[in-house]
Design a protein around this nucleic acid. Structure first.
Length: 324
DNA sequence: GTCCGGCATAGCGAGTCAGT
DNA sequence: ACTGACTCGCTATGCCGGAC
């Protein structure tokens, strides 16, 4: 049995030697599992907590170091605008604020686990992608992140003044844009959709091959689905469901809470109704949308004042009675 | 009445969460 | 493997409510 202190020690060692731009809690857990040869899937919360703690202490250390440096710099640059102030300004005015809220919103959101902050910068939208020849011509680069493409595209639109004066959400396409979107004008909201045809994954040297492979894979999947379909149909007809699709008897308290008169619902349906209720009553903490602030009805049902949105299934568990 | 800030809107893909 | 909701970045605009 591995002790917690051993786990913490190895975890910290691993984090210090890792690229935090790509490391996630799952990466950490897998590494520890491999190091100690044990299954840590039941220790996810613990690992997450320790990663948090590690990042917190690292951050504090950095701040202390910076404070030391700042004091040194301000001593050196007396009488003029110090570098320290410039740095702060730079951070606050990262760019002209065309969008009034987006940046702030994202800044607030990013104050979460360090692993989440960093991992998303390298994956998802920020993943480097290959561009179509038409898009390459406009962007002047063969590869770019989707977000960067959007940014540059808007810079181009503003530079050429291509927004429809009557409805500035519409973009009037010039020749290069027409070559990409194949229309004379396009709604800004449709632009991303149209763009996706010109942004390809970079996983392989040969994008065409990737596309062909994924097509083949999809076909295979469809074939498999087709062959399974009769079995699934039969299963559905028999009413055989499992997991989230299993119809569950609701506790009286939950049935009363939902107030629909139904005594049996699937887990997914209950969760959906629960979120509808939370949103309908504005019960999400504005500063952390995952945190739910219970009103009287919710307090009565769950017997807590607040809970994390992710734990809703856990809180609901005692209110489900399995039917045979 | 005007100004300002906050939020929603659309779309994309990958990943996370807890529990079954 | 699956559930539903959510986050991440990026953009401009419309609407709403609060402050002055």
């Amino acid at each position: 049995m591995v002790s917690e202190s051993e786990l913490i020690g190895r975890l910290r060692e691993f984090l210090r030697s890792s690229d935090l731009n790509t490391t996630t809690t799952t990466t950490v857990r897998r590494q520890l599992e491999s190091d100690f040869g044990i299954d840590l899937s039941d220790r996810k919360a613990f690992i997450r907590e320790q990663v948090d703690l590690f990042l917190q202490t690292e951050h504090q250390q950095e701040e202390e170091e910076e404070e030391g440096e700042d004091a040194f710099k301000s001593e050196q640059s007396q009488g003029s605008n110090s570098k320290v102030e410039e740095d702060v300004d730079d951070e606050e005015e990262e760019k002209p604020n065309h969008s009034r809220n987006g940046k702030k919103k994202n800044k607030e959101r990013s104050n979460k686990l360090g692993d989440e902050v960093v991992k998303k910068r390298s994956g998802g939208f920020c993943k480097l992608c290959s561009l179509s020849p038409q898009l390459q011509e406009l962007m002047g680069a063969p590869e770019m992140a989707r977000t960067e493409v959007v940014k540059q595209l808007w810079a181009y639109i503003r530079e050429k003044d291509l927004q429809d004066p009557e409805n500035r959400r519409n973009i009037i396409c010039d020749e290069p844009l027409r070559a990409i979107f194949c229309v004379n004008s396009i709604n800004m909201f449709q632009m991303n959709k149209a763009l996706s045809k010109h942004i390809w994954p970079l996983d392989s040297d040969d994008v065409v091959q990737v596309k062909a492979e994924s097509k083949e894979k999809k076909k295979k999947q469809e074939r498999e689905e087709d062959s399974d379909e009769p079995k699934r149909k039969e299963k559905r007809q028999k009413g055989g469901k499992s997991g989230f699709l299993a119809p569950l008897k609701l506790s009286d308290a939950l049935a009363n809470f939902l107030g629909t008169g139904e005594s049996e619902l699937t887990r997914a349906e209950v969760i959906k109704k629960m979120w509808d209720y939370i949103k309908g009553n504005n019960l999400q903490d504005p500063s952390d949308k995952r945190k739910i602030l219970c009103d009287e009805k919710l307090k009565e049902l769950f017997d807590v004042d607040t809970f994390n949105g992710f734990t809703v299934t856990k809180l609901l568990a005692p209110h489900f009675i399995k039917t045979s």
